[in-house]
Design a protein around this nucleic acid. Structure first.
Lengths: 192, 192
DNA sequence: TAGAGAAACAAGCGCCCGCTTGGTTATCGG
DNA sequence: CCGATAACCAAGCGGGCGCTTGTTTCTCTA
């Protein structure tokens, strides 16, 4: 964790531009200019443009996975695990919204091998979430439910955050997560 | 109506390629080849590459809006309106998954004027959904709730469909919509 | 303060981009 | 079977793309 290197600066600039214009919509010259240099100078720090995308996407994957992994094995009720997992996820989006955007939108621009690598991380994340749900059903904390659809509903909610969540707005990450969590647990219907 | 024109063929090819590789990741020459002609021949039918994107995105917007609009004014309970709106939305995704993908991913590649036009359609759609929710709360069909967050939860679920839903799989559009609808209405928790 | 290593520049290569132009072919009603 | 019209081809323009090469400038330490 030393002070930021030039590479860090370039990655920071790249993730911002990729999130705004997409990978194919961003040129090496634009990245270089935003980093305060000419395009050729970039290549003292990177190999290819796609390497930049790969590093950004893997950084994002690590942040999301790192947020949920310690929770799954914790000794907590499933509903509480779910709550904390959602908070952690929103916090990652809040702290790295550009990363989240690139992670969701641009990973398909990677080469097949790297795309497969990212797909594996995605799957791992989904399985962690699925595990919380399965455990909750087994413990009787959740009703018997369509585990896949419930997982997809929650995943959709958190994966869509990058489209609208503004961390400078009135809702903190835990506000958002708590509200989603309540909605998902209790539903829209009044208790009869 | 009438039989498909060359323009229709080109749009069909374009939406497929845009959905697979993105707008900036697709070249005019690729579209032309997939349509069985050379790149110059395309320009007998279109003005610019971006016009193609615009037409595709507006087609998608019209399909989604056309699916929800007749429902909002119908004389039905709010929960039933919501159910039918979700079914209609999933059916649009099932029938036009490539359109849905381009609509969600590529509209930011449009010029500012056209992007604003699309944003207005999106907002209109969200307002229709919000209206159903507000009405449901007023009628006592839904508990008093955070209307914005409930709207975002449902929107996230249906807007994420293009990422995973396979219309050739075992779940029909109404299967998917019904399951989401039940989850959203009833929540994960067992009735105590 | 000399010199090494990191960082950036200047210039440009080969390629593909979106798009244009001028001419050729296929189709079909009269 | 002629002529109009739509559809397409062949060729290529100007420009921007990702990336390379050879040189210069900056910065820190010995």
């Amino acid at each position: 964790m030393g002070r930021p290197t030039r590479k860090d600066l370039i990655l920071e600039v790249a993730v911002r531009l990729f999130s705004e214009r997409g990978f194919h919509g961003t040129t090496i010259r634009e990245i270089a200019e935003a980093a305060g240099m000419l395009s050729g100078s970039l290549y003292a720090h990177i190999q290819t443009k796609e390497d930049l995308l790969y590093e950004v996407v893997m950084q994002a994957a690590d942040r999301f996975l790192g947020a949920i992994e310690p929770l799954v094995v914790a000794d907590l009720p499933a509903a509480e695990k779910l709550r904390q997992a959602m908070i952690a996820h929103v916090e990652v989006v809040a702290a790295s919204r550009a990363h989240a955007t690139v992670f969701m939108h641009e990973w398909k621009a990677l080469t097949p091998e790297r795309r497969a690598e990212v797909a594996a991380r995605r799957k791992a994340y989904e399985q962690q979430l699925g595990q919380i749900l399965t455990e909750g059903v087994r413990r009787g904390e959740f009703k018997p439910l369509d585990e896949r659809m419930a997982r997809l509903l929650i995943l959709s909610a958190v994966n869509w955050l990058y489209e609208w969540y503004d961390p400078t707005g009135p809702l903190s990450p835990s506000d958002v997560a708590e509200r989603y969590w309540r909605l998902v647990l209790e539903g829209l219907q009044p208790r009869t």
